Amino acid sequence: MLEEFDDLISRLCANSPITQEEHRDRLFFTDDGLIFDSLWERNGYFTFGRSERPSFGGGHLWTRNPTIAQYQLVVVLGSYIRRLNSWDP
């Protein structure tokens, strides 16, 4: 079900050191290998989480709306891009 985000993820992560990994139907993103953001879908909910390792714990945002999930994905990956380029918030 997360395939609908492939184009957005590809555009945001192009030419950047953001690493994307998939484990047990979850996508994990990191730019430094220390903090991982994750996205997964379960029971019709898109869920986002953040941890110090690729963790399978709970998330901090749950939504059934794919537009809100896309927006959160832009926020998460955009913050990596901003930080990597030393841009002001």
Rank of each mutant, 00 (worst) to 15 (best):
I35S: 05
S55V: 01
W40C: 03
E22Y: 10
N43M: 03
Q20E: 04
W62H: 07
F56H: 15
Q70S: 06
H60F: 10
Q20P: 11
D25F: 13
H60Y: 13
P89W: 15
L73W: 02
S79C: 09
R50I: 01
L8I: 11
G33T: 06
W62T: 04
H60C: 13
Q72G: 10
R53G: 05
L8E: 00
I9Y: 09
F56I: 05
L12W: 11
V76T: 15
T67M: 12
V76L: 13
Y45L: 10
G78Q: 10
D32R: 07
P54F: 04
D6Y: 15
F29W: 01
D37Q: 14
N15E: 15
F46A: 01
L77G: 06
Q72S: 11
I18G: 01
L12C: 07
D37N: 03
V75C: 15
I35G: 07
N85W: 13
S55M: 08
R24S: 00
P17E: 08
I18N: 01
L73R: 06
P89S: 09
V75A: 09
T67G: 07
W40L: 00
F46T: 01
H60K: 14
R64I: 02
T30F: 02
P54V: 04
G59C: 04
S55D: 08
L34T: 13
T67H: 14
T30D: 04
R42T: 10
S55P: 05
